[in-house]
């Protein structure tokens, strides 16, 4: 077992355990903090996949922005959080069953792929993403310029919409 594999297994184990805790813990605050750990684990896997850039983006956006936002909201809405009773529905076993079936189905589907063991890395061991190519593709009219612009419009719309929805208006209690 190579060093890389050990790193993978440790990171994956931490990620999965903390992910399970994220969805099961009673205190939303703890869940949110463990979410940060999960996201960090995922970014480690990104590095192992030689996607260093996206590992950084993961830390910046997910941990820096998304998880922080969630933490803020958790703190803002703390007064109605009731931790005395379970934070999952009574019929949580149904959800667990569904999730398990999905997992098993995915694994079974994967294992039915014959060519699996032969797959080798397409990325050379010492390189990462070709960021120049990615950047060009995003603004190239023959590449992804339109999806890129649509995404930016989406972000603007989101920003406006979020401000509008969350802003306090006169006349409300």
């Amino acid at each position: 077992m190579s060093g890389m594999q050990i790193v993978f297994l440790v990171a994956a184990a931490i990620t999965l355990v903390s992910a399970v805790l994220v969805v099961t813990l009673r205190r939303t605050m703890s869940s949110a903090l463990l979410l940060v750990l999960t996201l960090l684990g995922v970014s480690v896997l990104f590095v192992l996949l030689q996607a260093q850039f996206f590992a950084v983006v993961q830390v910046l956006i997910y941990i820096g922005a998304v998880a922080t936002l969630i933490l803020f909201v958790v703190m803002l809405t703390r007064s109605v959080m009731d931790t005395s009773e379970p934070q999952v529905h009574k019929n949580w076993w149904l959800a667990a069953l569904v999730s398990l079936v999905v997992f098993v189905a995915l694994v079974v589907t994967l294992s039915s792929w014959q060519a699996f063991p032969q797959v080798q890395r397409a990325i050379p061991a010492d390189s990462g993403e070709n960021l120049a190519a990615l950047g060009k593709a995003l603004v190239d009219p023959n590449g992804f310029a339109l999806p890129f612009e649509v995404a930016s419009i989406l972000l603007v719309a989101t920003m406006i919409g979020a401000v509008y929805i969350a802003s306090e208006r006169k006349g409300e209690e």
Partner: peptide, 23 residues
């Protein structure tokens, strides 16, 4: 696949909408 299923469980089972969002 495992992470996806865990997240799915979170979305389906959490009472709290913030928990769903985390899923």
């Amino acid at each position: 696949a495992a992470l996806f299923s865990i997240g799915l469980f979170g979305v389906l089972a959490r009472k709290n909408v913030i928990g769903m969002l985390m899923g």
